[in-house]
Design a protein around this nucleic acid. Sequence first.
DNA 1: GCCCAGGTATAAA
DNA 2: TTTATACATGGG
Length: 266
Amino acid sequence: MIINLKVEKSFDLDKTLDCGQCFRWYKKLDSWFGVVNGYIAKVKIENNFLKIESELCNKKFWRSYFDLEFDYEALAPYFSKFGSILMNAADENRGIHILNQNPWEALCSFIISQNNNISRIKLIISRFCEYFGKKLNGFYSFPDYKVIAKLKTEDLSPIKAGFRSKYIIDAARRIFNLEVDLEKIKIMNTSDALCALQKINGVGPKVAACTMLYGFHRFDCFPVDVWIKKVIDKYFKNHDIDFGKYRGLAQIYLFNWSRSHPEFFK
DNA sequence: GCCCAGGTATAAA
DNA sequence: TTTATACATGGG
């Protein structure tokens, strides 16, 4: 029921769960509440331990979910090579770990994210879970794609996702009938996987890259969004700049840095 | 009220 | 091939 995992001092639970990679963790006092793989979880930091209260009591699973084995600290010199902006961004966002989220949940969340703002993304996803997930003890699980695949676009109208509803249905159907095989994508090379994901209507380069980074834990994908464009335009005049094999981490550092420094874009 | 948001599909040039 | 526009909804 309760798991305690030793974590590095640098690990920052707040930043990790509130950096825009996931949309379904809620903070209350000093604890975070979420639903992972159909199980409610309450997590907090106590001393240098991550304390997890959940029916899903599998240490290995949670170590993987919070990516506790990977040495993020060791990458500071790597990012500093790309200039002071990325160096500062990496430093300010030190402690973010990329979660090992369920790929379907990540895909769906980032389909919903398109041309949208974070608070409304959260709102739509919570309605999606409420209407189509399983009711737990005061929470809802993320809807199964097998359930969504059988719905019609208009069935999603209560979640008010607008034009994105048809994309969610299309994603669920193609995953269900294996036109897009998530298990195969896991073992594909990056460019083939990005291509496969973009067979889904409503999934372009940005959503595919987010799915790879946040759903499949592929750090070599760089999702270019409006914020990143602003940073690239202003600080990296070479638009083809390549941040190397950890470009996904570079992206989330720059994303959060740009959002916390609006003054730099006036 | 007005602008715009972790983009993408589609039409037009 | 490149560029423009519509899209649903609600936060700021």
